[in-house]
Design a protein around this nucleic acid. Structure first.
Length: 320
DNA sequence: CGCATTTGACCCAG
DNA sequence: CTGGGTCAAATGCG
């Protein structure tokens, strides 16, 4: 699923799909601005704004839904609906085939046998995933812990594996992989698997509320030094240093997969221009909830506020 | 001292 | 058999 540019001879359905995506993007940006202004005014949000938000959100939903049905119709189950205009940043939603196993640790081992259970896992088979390629590493509100790094065949840079910090204390199954794929304009690909079930979403939603002002600062900073310069390792030593402060990232939502009927075999992709959507999804606030305790209260309130708009579409759930 | 990262081993899917 | 994903001991850091 390498991203590439659009072929010139796109089927018309596909073009329409693109249009819908573009519309959705623009509306999303408006919404972002609106929310931002609202946030600036700081007063409690008045009803007018709320309602406007709802309208915008509905439009977004409609656009994306239209797009998806178009793509589905024309490509059937194909999951190759992944080509989108190239942008420094884009996301690929891959609501792929049902996860055959909820986790990797469980059933795979019939016999733990030896104390050393290394490598006891079930290989991931392209379950729900979101691919995000950015020119910068974005921070998005979740605490990640690195658990592995692998040199990948034919790849210049190693792939790094992260799991949610709260995997053990809260059983959160979210994982992600991050890999640098280009150097000169640095380009990083993050692939998210699983869904956060931990209560740690504050950052993402909070970010949403003042995203515009944060913009670049929302990117994970490696001490203000370009990643490429900083590390001894091609990519990850520096990255890990950031992870150490609880590298946070936004992940796919944790609920949407509860719907067993959610169609499988989709491969969604959004292509926000600029890094706007990326920014939308990133967050970089602060304090670390690490340490294992973790139940911050105000946290959930914010999340609720953001999630209160009832989306039934996977994509929007992802976005929000 | 506790927690996060590093890194080699291990296991499985293809 | 190989490449890729995960585990966990060793190590590092605050």
């Amino acid at each position: 699923m390498e991203s590439s540019s659009w072929p010139d001879h796109l089927p018309s359905d596909r073009r329409r799909a693109i249009d819908e995506l573009v519309k959705g993007r623009d509306l999303t940006l408006k919404l972002r601005d609106l929310v931002h202004n609202n946030n600036n005014n700081n007063n409690n949000t008045n009803a007018a704004i709320s309602s406007l938000n709802q309208d915008l959100v509905l439009n977004i939903l409609k656009s994306f839904t239209n797009c998806l049905s178009i793509l589905k119709r024309s490509y059937g189950e194909s999951d190759e609906v992944s080509q989108v205009p190239t942008d420094p940043t884009h996301f690929t939603w891959d609501a792929d085939v049902a996860v055959k196993s909820e986790d990797s640790e469980g059933s795979s081992k019939t016999t733990p046998t030896i104390k050393d259970r290394r490598g006891c896992y079930k290989r991931r088979k392209c379950s729900d995933s979101i691919t995000n390629e950015t020119s910068t590493l974005t921070d998005d509100g979740h605490a990640w812990r690195k658990y592995g790094q692998k040199v990948i065949l034919n790849a210049k840079y190693p792939r790094n594996y992260f799991r949610c910090t709260h995997k053990h204390d809260q059983g959160c199954q979210a994982t992600k992989q991050v890999q640098q794929i280009e150097e000169n304009p640095p380009l990083y690909r993050s692939i998210y698997y699983g869904h956060h079930t931990c209560k740690n979403l504050l950052k993402a939603s909070q970010f949403l509320l003042d995203s515009t002002s944060k913009d670049q600062s929302s990117m994970i900073s490696f001490g203000n030094v370009p990643i490429a310069d900083k590390q001894n390792h091609p990519f990850f030593s520096s990255f890990s240093s950031s992870v150490k402060q609880e590298y946070r990232d936004e992940l796919p939502p944790s609920d949407h997969h509860n719907d067993p009927s959610s169609s499988s075999d989709h491969h969604y992709l959004l292509s926000p221009h600029d890094d706007q959507l990326t920014t939308l999804l990133s967050s970089d606030h602060g304090e670390v909830i690490s340490g294992g305790n973790s139940s911050s209260s105000s946290l959930d309130m914010e999340v609720m506020a953001v999630e209160s708009v009832n989306f039934d579409d996977d994509i929007l759930q992802y976005v929000f």
